[in-house]
Design a protein around this nucleic acid. Structure first.
Lengths: 344, 344
DNA sequence: AATAGTAATGCAAATGTTTTCATAAAACCT
DNA sequence: AGGTTTTATGAAAACATTTGCATTACTATT
C-alpha cells in the first residue's frame, strides 16, 4: 500500500524517504548515539511507514554475530528436556538471540548432520545435550572454533564446557536411598545406554552402590525401555509379573518411574506398601502424582538458565574460556518409598 | 591445520584449491547437474580438506529462501505442544528446513515481537498456534506476504490457512459424553481464555451442550487454572472440597484432567466411582495413566505433519493459495467416566 | 569441412547491509 | 576572528555468495 511503486523495502527505500544516506539509516539502527535525534526521528518515521524490517542475513555476512543459537536436543517430544529448553530459551531471548532447534532422536549421526546445517546458518554458539557425541562432531566444533556447552551433564574431564549435574551421583543417591531402606530385591528400569552418557552414568552409579551392598542384580529384574510412558509401563508390567517380584524399582528417570507407578496401579499393587519406586529427574508432575514420586532432583530450569547466560556472555565476549559448572542434586523424599524388612 | 595460512575458508579458498572459479564451486553446490562430474569430484575433495561450510546468510541475501521456518508457540514447557512441534519438526527437517523456535507464554504482544525477530532473519514461512493474534500480527503477516499457517485450530472463516481441529466440537463431544452418562452436577476446569481461542472455543462448545440439556453451571464449580499440573491439582482440590461436589468434571485439556485425577486420588475419591473426568487432547500418557483418561482425541502428530508438509510445499512453490484442513476428532472412552443416576 | 548446437566454465554485476574514511558544519576556546 | 575539536553525515569498499552473459571447446549434423 504505502510502498506502492517498487515494493522492495530495503535500506535504500528508507534512506530515500527520510532524505538521508543509507549509512545514516544503518547507523541509526546500530549506533543510534551517533546520529542526530531529529534525523533519527525522520528515519524512524520512514521505517514505520514503509514497514521496513532489517535483514539479519546481510548483517551476518559482515562477520557480525548472526544472533542465532543452534540448540540440538535428543527429543522435544516429552517432559525430559522441555524444562531445560524453556529455561534456556527464556534466558537467551532476554539477550536478543534467536534459537534454532532440532532433535536427533538419540542418533549421533543425525546430530552431526544437524550441527552442520546449523553451522551453515552461522549460529553463534552451539549448546548440546550430554557428553556423548561422535568424534566427527567434536572435531567439527573444535575446528570451527565455535563456543559450545554441553548441558545436563557434569564431569571434570569433559571435552567441552559443561553445565549440569553429576549423573553418576544421581544414580548413587537413588540407589543409596532404596538400599538404605532395607530393599535388597531391586529391579532396574533404564533406557538404552548407547549414545546416552546420562543414562550410562546413572546406571553405573546405582551399580556401584548395589555392588557395595552385596546386592547383585537379577537379570530378569533388569529391564530396558525407551523414554516413553507407554513403553515404560509395559516394561514395568513385565517386572511386576516376574515370579520373583522386586520390592523396589530404580528408574533411569521420572518418565520411566511414572510408567512403573501406572503399571503398579493397573496390577492393584499399592505404592509404597507393596512396591517402592525411585526416579531421577524431578520433572513437572513428579511432585503432583499420587503418591508423590521420590526422586533425585536435577535442577533443569537452573541448568537451562545458566547455560543460556554462559553462552550469551561468551558471544558478547565478556567471557571466553571454558567452564564447568556442577549443579546441586538431592534426593527428594516423597511418597513412593517405604522401609523394607523382608526376608532376603 | 589444513588451512594453515589465512584460515578463512570461503568459497575462494575452495575454488583456489580445486583450481576452478568460484562460480563453478557455487554451481557445484546449487546446480550440480551443470558441472562436469570430474570437476565436481575435485571440488568435493577441496571442500572436505578445507572443512568448508557454506554460508547460508550470503545465499539468503540473494532473495533465495533462507531455509528457515519461524515457529512460535505459546509454550515449550509441557506436553501440550510437544507432540505437534516434534511432528512438525520431523516433517520440515525432511525438506531440509531449519526451525527457529520461540515461545510467548500466551502473551500476544510478545508474539508480535518474536515474529518481527523472525522476519529479520527472513524466515520463509511462519507457522503459528491458534487463531488469536494481535491485529498488528495479522497485518505484519499480510504485509510481508509471507506464507503462514495456524495449527491446532480449524475454522472455515479463519483469516489465515489453518490445519487443526474444531475446538468447539471438541468441547461439544466432551460435554455430550458426560451429559449422556446422566451427569448433571458438572464442574468445569478451564484455563484462562484470554488470548486463547482454543480454550475459548472448547468452552463455548461445552456451554452450548450444557445449556441445551438445561444444566446451568454453578459458578462455584467453574474454576480456572493455568496449564500446569500443580495449578490444576490445587484448583481441582478446590472443586472437590466444594460443599456441593460435582459428579463429573469437564477439563479444558488433558494436563488439567491429570491434575484432577491426582487431586481425586489425594482426597481418596475413586475414579470413576466417585467422580467422572473427561479431558481434551489425548496427550502422551493420557492412555497410560490409571484409570486411562477418557478424552477427546486431537491428532497432534497429524496436525504437525500436515502443517509441515503444507509449508514446505508452499515454499518450494508447489502450492500457493490458502487452505483449511480440519482433522478428525473423536471421544476416546477409557476409564475415567461412569454413568450417573443420582437425584438431581 | 563448415555450421550449428551443446556442455563446461569464467567474469563481473548484483544482493542488503556495515564500517572506515573523508568532509562539512557547528561549537568551543582563547 | 582564527584555530581546534566535536558532531553529523555521505561515499565507497567490504562481506560471501549467486547468476546472467560471454566464451571456449567439443560433438553432431549436413
Amino acid at each position: 500500500m504505502y510502498d506502492s511503486n517498487k515494493n522492495k523495502v530495503d535500506i535504500f527505500a528508507v534512506a530515500k524517504r527520510a532524505n538521508v544516506s543509507i549509512s545514516t539509516v544503518s547507523r541509526s539502527f546500530n549506533h543510534p548515539e551517533l546520529v542526530n535525534p531529529a534525523t533519527r526521528k525522520k528515519i524512524e518515521r520512514a521505517v514505520r511507514k514503509l514497514g521496513y524490517i532489517r535483514n539479519r542475513a546481510a548483517q551476518t555476512m559482515h562477520g557480525i554475530r548472526s544472533g542465532t543459537i543452534g540448540l540440538v536436543v535428543p527429543t522435544i517430544d516429552h517432559a525430559i528436556f522441555a524444562e531445560v529448553v524453556q529455561a534456556f530459551s527464556d534466558s537467551v531471548d532476554a539477550h536478543g538471540f534467536t534459537i534454532m532447534i532440532a532433535s536427533h532422536g538419540y542418533d549421533l549421526e543425525r546430530e552431526y548432520a544437524v550441527l552442520r546445517k546449523f553451522l551453515e546458518h552461522r549460529v553463534d554458539p552451539l549448546p548440546l545435550i550430554g557428553e556423548d557425541h561422535s568424534q566427527e562432531t567434536y572435531e567439527l566444533i573444535e575446528r570451527q572454533n565455535i563456543p559450545a556447552v554441553t548441558m545436563w551433564n557434569y564431569s571434570e574431564t569433559s571435552r567441552l564446557s559443561c553445565i549440569g549435574a553429576d549423573n553418576k551421583m544421581a544414580g548413587v543417591l537413588a540407589a543409596q536411598h532404596l538400599v538404605g531402606l532395607g530393599h535388597r530385591d531391586i529391579g532396574l528400569l533404564f533406557p538404552p545406554t548407547k549414545d546416552n552418557d546420562r543414562a550410562r552414568d546413572r546406571r553405573s552409579g546405582v551399580q556401584k552402590i548395589l555392588l557395595n551392598a552385596g546386592i547383585n542384580i537379577n537379570p530378569d529384574l533388569d529391564v530396558e525401555s525407551t523414554y516413553s510412558i507407554a513403553d515404560a509401563k509395559s516394561a514395568a508390567l513385565h517386572l511386576l509379573r516376574s515370579p520373583h517380584r522386586p520390592s523396589g524399582i530404580l528408574c533411569g528417570n521420572d518418565v520411566l518411574a511414572m510408567g512403573v507407578l501406572y503399571a503398579a496401579r493397573s496390577c492393584n499393587l499399592d505404592i509404597p506398601q507393596d512396591l517402592s519406586v525411585v526416579g531421577i529427574g524431578d520433572f513437572k508432575g513428579s511432585s503432583e502424582v499420587e503418591p508423590g514420586l521420590t526422586t533425585v532432583r536435577l535442577p533443569a530450569r537452573e541448568i537451562g538458565r545458566l547455560a543460556g547466560n554462559h553462552l550469551s556472555q561468551s558471544i558478547t565476549g565478556d567471557l571466553t574460556n571454558e567452564q564447568r559448572v556442577g549443579c546441586d542434586i538431592a534426593l527428594i523424599e516423597r511418597g513412593t518409598c517405604k522401609p523394607h524388612f523382608g526376608v532376603s
